[in-house]
Each structure stands twice: as structure tokens, then as C-alpha cells.
Design a protein around this nucleic acid. Structure first.
Length: 616
RNA sequence: GACCCCGUAGCUCAGUGGAUUAGAGCGCUUCCCUGCGGAGGAAGAGGUCGCGCGUUCGAGUCGCGCCGGGGUCGCCA
């Protein structure tokens, strides 16, 4: 059954709920974004809904013209209604309409001051009401604060990381891995079923070289990354030699063929190199808090490839040219591309088509999200166009989330050939090592084990944050100074802010258990100091930040929120004593605010895959 | 030649259905420890939003054209 607030009913803009447990929420574009049942509506969304209802109740503005916006930070209001459009439709001056509305609306619920500022109608939150609402929301939701049920019943496949087998992961993979995992975390927070798939580069022409090189030089000895590095070196030596010696090139081709035909020796060596690579990669994944559900890899799709080519030919989206190659041309004005080489071999594109088909069949996703570098934008557009042309994209959104290239301090792209490549394992090692030096200096008293844990959290956090704090499609420079900064907009600053919160809460607990006076009852309505209010209002924005981050496939929205949280907490910390607050009930209220800040910040950091130590 | 991304303070970046006085961090100049963690807080200097037209009452934001940087364009992935 569906119950709506009787004074409001259904209308464009935000419909309202109040104490009811069922409601509809419309966006300003008239899309139903939430049909609530037991899902609690976050405070800020309630506030917006209340404002729309209040404006509608005046009868002065047609509901379809009620539009609100979040004002810029320098405007002393929490929600604004620019009256331009409505005033034009009603043929009255905008300032006059704003003034009339201001006079007709009384504070109630979460709505505090209402005032006209020229053509804008500004609304402020009622300080005591918002404080109580937000803090109790965080407290009751805990780790789920900021999460939604928007994606319930829907599945998203995220394709990320995609290391090459028989090679070490390098900084080029780190962006896909970290951005991809964060998107997975964000989609899960929105209630989607998320399937992460590591599309391993374990097939193709170059794998014949790997096998031929192993045959020539023998399996690399040693273990872990050293063995993998040696395998990589063998590959490089063989490739170089094959350029001079056509017989070696031909021999590699033979190995490639043996592998494809299921030759036992080829398969064994192939599997061995996969196992070696994945065991080395796993250490990096563990340290980065990355957990990928599947790793089907390109080889998995081998059996589907003839069918893909046949289907494309049958559907008339591709043709076989004189040389025998299967060509797709004239698709959405994109450049031509191939599904099969003239020698009969398949291509990256062929396997990508098969991969989409498999995922549609296996997971029935509403979206497939590819976290792949910007240089592959054209390839992705071609793939998506082809899937549409073949009639396979009707029920699924195919999204490419491109990310920029990593450059070194001299402005050169990192590459193995240039010799300036940085491997993921050593990058993380060095970050932790540098963090360790700071920990030694700042945390003299910590037990050895905790020092190590803090150094790892800080070092890894810095590496992760370096990839998440800005728009992924920008090119980035690997700058140790910037990456390992412990001040300003940095992972360390966020972690430090969390640790300060925990420190206060820990002391409060110690005092309580040490026979100190009982804390007073928390009267949250007393949290009306400007810095308390700013912090509270910001904490209230996490739920919408999560939605925005998902809608824009933009982890930096969460990073931004975390950073602002830390900043607002810093100001509060300076201006409002907690443990030595003037009264016990204010002290209790501030402790509740600190606890809420810690919880919300921890939730935000968790989305980014950044650990938050209790002490550091 | 065509197409894609980027261009906002000295440096690194936010600013996304156009709308009230363009915001941070780093760096620079000052200031705040008898006070819950100084990996902190406050203040200041610093901006023709690459350039030019256009749309609009109103453009960093939308359109077109340039300039600069990065990238891609059928038998690699």
C-alpha cells in the first residue's frame, strides 16, 4: 500500500513524506528516484521536500515551476529558490515574487529562516533540528550511513585492473585497479549487486613469445616478484632476438598455436605463469584493499569467438574482405576495425564482444562499466557501437570510464622501453617505507606492531588517494612530494582527523570507566555554534555525495567530501572544547557529534579503500 | 587530415541541468601551544577562468571558430 502525505499528494518537484513510512520522491526532472518503504529518508532530502511542500502550499507558484538549488558557500542559506523562471511565467518581477513567498512561509520542521535576497528565496535549516536529525541518523545507521537502496535488484559489472599475465603490474595498472575498486564500493553502497571482473591479459599473439622464451631459457627460478621480473626479462630478450631471427618469430607463433589447440605442455606452462602472476599480484591487491570477484581473462572467451564472427557476418554489420579479414565499417561514422585478421587470428575486439555476450548472459546487468585508460576511448566506442548494431545493447548501459596517463616528474610517460617504469609493488613498498619514517618520528610510544600497521595504512592511503582526489580523466604526474604529503588535501590529513576524533572518544570512555562523573544526557539541540553547524550540515551531505559520485562515476566526489569533513572538524576542534565543554549535557552532545564525525568519515574513507587507524 | 580529452591563482586541482561576491591545498608573508593530538587552526598577498565571436536580462559553465598540451585512427592489447 502506498500512503502519501495528505496535504501534499503527488506533484512534480519533490513530493513529500513526513512521518509515513511510504513515500515517493521525485527529482526536479520528474523522475521517481525513490519509492520508499522501510528506507529512511536522509535529513537533507527531507529538508528539500519540506521546502517544496511549503512553497507549494502558498499557492503562489505552480508546482512545476518550483525549482531549488544549493546556494554557493558564501550565501548564508542552505537552499535557494531562484525565482526567475516562475516570475517570468507569472509576469511579476522576480524580487517581488521572492518577497511575497518569504512572507508567506513560516519556519517548521527542518525549515528555519526564510528570506528573500533580491530574486532569490533563501531557506536555512533550523539549527537545533538539523543537529538532532543528522547525528541520530548517523548513530542509527552506523556503517551504512550514506548508503542507499537505489540499486536494489539491479546488477552492475565492473571491468577493472586487467593486469597482463607474465608481467609485473606497474603504475599503468594502478589507476584502473584503484578507481575501479572505488566505483565497486560506491555502487555497492547504493544497493547494487556488483560483479567485479578482472579481465586478465592472458591470451593473444604475445603469449606465444612467453612460452617460447620459457622453453629457450627455462622456467625462472626463485619466487614472487623476482621470478616474475625474470619472466618479463626473458620475454624481452626473446622479442629482441626474434626481430633479428625470423625462425624465432616463427617458433613463437608455433607455441601460440599449440596453446590455442590445447597442447598439454603449452597449457601447463601457461597455467604456471598465470598462477605465478596472480600470486604476486594478490599481495598488491591485499595491500590496496582490492577484492575482485572474478578473473575470467581473455582466454576464457576463446570458444565463443567463431560464433561472434559468424553472428557479425550474418547480421550484416561486418564483411570478409578480399584478403580474408573480417571488417566492420561505417559504424556511427567511426573508423573501420577488424574482428578477424586475414591469417584467421582473432583480436582484442573479438574477445571484447564475446565478453559482453558472456556477461549479459551470466549476470543480466543493467550496466557494464569499463575502467580503462583514455587512449582506448576509440576502441570502446567501436565496441559499444558494434554491440548496439548487433542488437545486444538494448537492456544494458555500456560505460567507459577513461583515465589519464601517468607521467614522470620530467613529463615523460612511464614506459618499460623508456626505462622509467615504476612497478606497483615497489611503489607501495617505498610509500610505506617513507610513511614509516614519519611514524617513527611522530609516534615514538606506539608498539612496534602498531607502528607497522600505521605506516602501511598511511603509505597505502597516500598511493590510493593520489589516484582518487581528482577527476580520473586527467593525466597525472607521479610526484612523490605531492603523493606523500601529510598536510592539506591528503590521505594522511584525513586519517589524522579520524584519529583525533577517536582520541577524544577514547579519553571520554577512560574517564567514564575510571569512575568519573556520568556524562549528562546528550542534548543535541544545543549544537548551534557556527562551527558545529557547519560540520553537521556537511556530515548531512554524505548521502548525496555517494549518489553524485555514482552518477558521475567520480570517486573524487567522495574524496572531496572526506577532505571537507576533515577541514570542518579541524575548525570545530579549535573552537569548541569537547571534554571540557561548559556543561555536561553540551559535552555529551559534542561527544555525539565527534562520534558521528568519526563514523561518517570512516564510511567515506572505506568507500575509497583507505584504512583509518585509531591512533597515528 | 579526422576524431577524443585537457586548459581556472606561481604549482596541483574543485567549481555538472547558466543565476547571489569564482573556491581549496601546496608554496610565500604574518599570527595562535599553562587548552581534547601542531600530521592542527587563523589572517594576508596572489585570478584578463587559454583567445575571439555568439546565445541570454545574466556565461568559468551553453554554441561556433581559433591557439596550446596530451591521445587515438583495420590486421597489438
Amino acid at each position: 500500500m502506498l500512503t502519501l502525505h495528505r496535504n501534499v499528494g503527488l506533484f512534480g518537484g519533490y513530493a513529500v513524506k513526513q512521518p509515513h513510512t511510504w513515500f515517493l520522491l521525485y527529482t526536479e526532472r520528474n523522475e521517481v528516484i525513490l519509492v520508499g518503504s522501510t528506507v529512511m529518508h536522509y535529513a537533507l532530502a527531507r529538508f528539500v521536500a519540506e521546502v517544496h511542500a511549503a512553497v507549494a502550499a502558498t499557492g503562489k507558484v505552480p508546482v512545476e515551476l518550483i525549482e531549488t538549488t544549493t546556494p554557493r558557500p558564501n550565501i548564508p542559506a542552505d537552499l535557494a529558490l531562484p525565482a526567475f523562471k516562475a516570475a517570468k511565467a507569472l509576469n511579476v518581477p522576480a524580487p517581488q515574487l521572492a518577497a511575497e513567498l518569504a512572507a508567506a512561509i513560516e519556519p517548521s520542521g527542518l525549515i528555519g529562516a526564510v528570506s528573500a535576497a533580491g530574486p532569490f528565496l533563501n531557506f536555512s535549516l533550523r539549527p537545533d533540528a538539523i543537529a538532532a536529525a543528522v547525528i541520530s541518523e548517523i548513530s542509527s545507521s552506523g556503517e551504512a550511513y550514506g548508503h542507499h537502496a537505489d540499486g536494489a535488484g539491479k546488477t552492475i559489472v565492473v571491468d577493472y585492473s586487467a593486469p597482463n599475465i607474465a608481467k609485473r603490474m606497474h603504475v599503468g595498472h594502478i589507476r584502473s585497479t584503484i578507481i575501479g575498486q572505488t566505483l565497486v564500493n560506491i555502487f555497492r553502497a547504493l544497493g547494487y549487486t556488483v560483479v567485479g571482473d578482472n579481465h586478465l591479459g592472458d591470451w593473444g599473439k604475445q603469449f606465444g613469445v612467453v612460452l617460447a622464451a620459457i622453453e629457450r631459457e627455462g622456467k625462472p627460478g626463485g619466487t614472487g616478484e623476482a621470478a616474475l621480473a625474470e619472466l618479463e626479462a626473458q620475454y624481452a630478450r626473446y622479442s629482441a632476438a626474434a626481430k633479428e631471427d625470423a625462425a624465432l618469430d616463427e617458433h613463437a607463433r608455433e607455441w601460440s598455436l599449440r596453446l590455442e589447440q590445447g597442447d598439454a605442455q603449452a597449457r601447463d606452462l601457461w597455467q604456471w605463469s598465470i598462477d605465478l602472476t596472480m600470486s604476486v599480484n594478490q599481495r598488491n591487491y591485499d595491500r590496496l584493499n582490492v577484492h575482485i570477484d572474478h578473473a575470467y581473462g581473455e582466454s576464457f572467451y576463446e570458444a565463443m569467438l567463431p560464433g561472434v564472427i559468424e553472428e557479425a557476418l550474418n547480421k550484416g554489420v561486418a564483411y570478409r574482405d578480399e584478403g580474408g579479414a573480417v571488417v566492420v565499417e561505417n559504424l556511427d561514422n567511426l573508423p573501420n576495425f577488424l574482428l578477424q585478421r586475414s591469417d584467421g587470428g582473432t583480436l582484442y575486439m573479438t574477445r571484447d564482444v564475446a565478453t559482453v555476450l558472456f556477461r549479459l548472459n551470466a549476470f543480466n546487468p543493467s550496466q557494464i562499466v569499463y575502467v580503462i585508460g583514455e587512449p582506448q576511448t576509440l576502441h570502446m566506442r567501436q565496441l559499444f557501437a558494434l554491440m548496439r548494431a548487433m542488437g545486444h545493447a538494448e537492456s544494458v548501459g555500456l560505460m567507459h570510464i577513461p583515465f589519464g596517463t601517468v607521467f614522470d616528474a620530467a613529463g615523460q610517460p612511464l614506459s618499460t622501453r623508456r626505462g622509467n617504469m615504476i612497478y606497483l609493488e615497489s611503489l607501495i613498498d617505498e610509500a610505506i617505507q617513507r610513511a614509516r619514517a614519519v611514524v617513527e618520528q611522530k609516534n615514538v610510544g606506539l608498539p612496534e606492531e602498531e607502528k607497522a600497521a600505521v605506516a602501511e595504512a598511511v603509505g597505502v592511503g597516500a598511493v590510493v588517494y593520489n589516484d582518487l582526489y581528482q577527476d580520473p580523466k586527467r593525466n597525472i604526474t607521479l610526484d612523490w612530494e605531492r603523493m606523500l604529503a601529510t598536510e592539506g588535501n591528503s590521505a594522511t590529513y584525513l586519517q589524522y582527523s579520524y584519529a583525533r576524533c577517536r582520541s577524544i572518544l577514547r579519553r571520554a570512555e577512560e574517564e567514564a570507566s575510571g569512575g568519573g562523573q556520568n556524562a549528562g544526557a546528550a542534548d543535541l539541540s544545543r549544537l548551534v555554534h557556527p562551527s558545529e553547524q557547519r560540520l553537521i550540515k556537511h556530515l548531512a551531505r554524505l548521502p548525496e555525495a555517494v549518489r553524485e559520485a555514482a552518477a558521475r562515476y567520480a570517486p573524487f566526489v567522495i574524496a572531496d567530501w572526506c577532505y571537507t569533513t576533515a577541514r570542518e572538524f579541524g575548525v570545530f576542534f579549535e573552537q569548541c572544547p569537547v571534554l571540557k565543554a561548559e556543561t555536561t549535557d553540551l559535552r555529551a552532545a559534542r561527544l555525539a557529534l565527534v562520534a558521528g564525525t568519526a563514523q561518517a568519515l570512516q564510511n567515506g574513507l572505506a568507500l575509497l579503500g583507505i584504512r583509518a587507524p585509531e591512533r597515528m
